[in-house]
């Protein structure tokens, strides 16, 4: 649908790998930026935290001004009740992903092509919360708000944003994800949580297409039909 779309993909892990391969398969020219997350950094400015600014600059030098920027924020490997968390773990689960998302937004802004789109991929626990993943879910909802605010700020300049909310089974490491499912009583209507290559990457492709140009700040829920509210 969007052959030659220049895409910056920020993040790492199995979900990002699947998105990368799926986007390449659909003709995107992809540069992947892997943040350095050794210190749970919460820097949002150039030269701080996860090296986002430097990484994005390097990615742009490889593919040119991106048409699509996709950020997959980090998530914790396993659930821990809030009262049992250390402050450091809380920072890594909640505050650092929010800071990383903000850093991505501000670092990529000067490089974006006309009518570019910025997309965050988060688990659906953003909307519903999740026991054991309180901080990660809170961060994801904060990032959804960032997508809306950026849409409102940058819309007059022709830029758009979106959020793709995916099944916890995709976003979190396998065993942890199933435990974070929003509804304990309702599995996905389509019978599976989906896969990054075949189910989610095509939606990123769609969001990069001019056909989606009038949608901004919105969340697309792609979890096979678990979260159906409102």
């Amino acid at each position: 649908m969007a052959d030659g779309t220049r895409t910056l993909l920020v993040g790492d892990g199995p979900l990002v790998d699947g998105l990368h391969d799926g986007l390449v398969d659909r003709g995107h020219v992809v540069a992947q930026v892997v943040p350095v997350r050794t210190d749970g950094g919460t820097g949002i400015e150039a030269g701080t935290g996860t090296g986002i600014s430097t990484g994005i600059g390097a990615g742009v030098s490889l593919i040119g001004r991106p048409d699509l920027v996709v950020h997959v924020p980090p998530v914790p490997a396993s659930p821990v009740p809030l009262v049992d968390q250390t402050t450091q773990r809380w920072v890594e689960a909640c505050e650092a992903p929010m800071a990383e998302a903000f850093a991505v937004a501000r670092a990529c802004r000067p490089h974006l092509s006309d009518r570019a789109r910025l997309v965050w991929v988060v688990p659906t626990v953003a909307m519903g919360g999740a026991a054991g993943f309180v901080g990660s879910a809170a961060a994801s909802e904060g990032i959804r708000a960032l997508a809306k605010s950026a849409a409102r700020q940058w819309g007059p300049e022709g830029l758009t944003t979106a959020v793709l909310a995916v099944a916890p089974e995709l976003a979190f490491p396998s065993d942890a994800g199933a435990g974070a499912r929003i509804s304990a009583t309702a599995g996905p209507a389509l019978g599976r949580p989906g896969d990054a290559f075949g189910d989610i990457a095509p939606l990123l492709d769609l969001l990069a297409d001019p056909a989606a140009r009038f949608m901004t700040g919105a969340t697309l829920v792609a979890d096979g039909g678990v979260w159906m509210a409102p």
Partner: peptide, 24 residues
Amino acid sequence: GSASLPVYAMVKAAQRTLAKGLAA
């Protein structure tokens, strides 16, 4: 979201889902 107060919007959104998670 907020066109004028993006950080405020983020932390207020996060607090709302934080409440949901704690409720659970």
